[in-house]
Amino acid sequence: MKTFEYAPGRSVDLYGETGAPVVLLWHGMQTDSRAAVRPLAERVAEHGYAVLAADWNSHAADNGRSDLLTSARYAAEQPGAGDGLIVVGWSMGGAAAAGLTFGAVGYGVRIAHTVCLAGAFMAPDPISGDPLTPPSAAGARVPMTLVHGSADDVIPVTAGRDFAAEAGAAGWRVQYIELAADHANIVGARYDAAADRYEPADDAASLAVAAEVAGIVAKPPVR
């Protein structure tokens, strides 16, 4: 793992080798918590990807818009991004990933596949600030995979199910997958109640879930 800056003072960790197909991975609402998604990033990289896990600040005045768009454009400039980014977002990062996908043309970012993990779709899009309502696909070619844990007690599974149905009705190519996972271990994280933070997990069960999710990210989307 190597750490770089995608903008002054804003960090991103690279897992895997430069030049491999690029996966951009966004953590959730917790500010600058790229370390929490390290187990998932490591396992996706094992499938032959260059994974960029970027910090972003949902509590900034712009709700993280600048961090999200700047990190996306940084990822898009990497050598392996020529065929488009795989954008993976967890929780609020999942909402941001969906928002980036819906507005990709306007944002100037090419996306090959979007994966939302336990997406907080009931919240406003952190990028636009608007309600996260799937627009008409109108010829958009970006497939989306929504993954939710059946034991998630933070974002209810109905959020993923309902959003998948809404996006599908709007013409988006959506695959919905439900796993035996909770809100944290879907990315290989654990919740530290004393610190009120998500941290990378090290137990076998959580890492097994992260490996399963990595396989979903690495698998070509349903066309």
Rank of each mutant, 00 (worst) to 15 (best):
R173D: 06
D62M: 13
A72I: 13
D55F: 02
D152K: 01
D153K: 12
Y198V: 03
R43E: 06
A180N: 09
P134M: 06
G82D: 10
G93C: 04
V51I: 02
A211E: 08
W26M: 11
M122R: 07
P79S: 04
A137P: 13
T18S: 15
H27G: 15
G99T: 04
V44I: 14
H183R: 09
P134T: 04
Y6F: 14
E199G: 05
A95N: 08
G89H: 10
A36I: 02
A60F: 10
A137Q: 12
C116I: 14
G108H: 09
A165L: 09
W90Q: 07
E77Q: 15
G108C: 08
A96R: 05
Y176D: 12
E42C: 07
A41R: 10
F163N: 00
D162C: 05
Y15I: 05
L117P: 12
V213D: 00
R10L: 09
V217S: 02
D13K: 07
D130C: 10
P8I: 11
Q175T: 15
A218Y: 06
A53L: 03
S150K: 15
A214E: 01
D202Q: 11
P220W: 06
G188N: 04
Y176T: 11
A204R: 13
H113A: 04
A208K: 06
K2M: 14
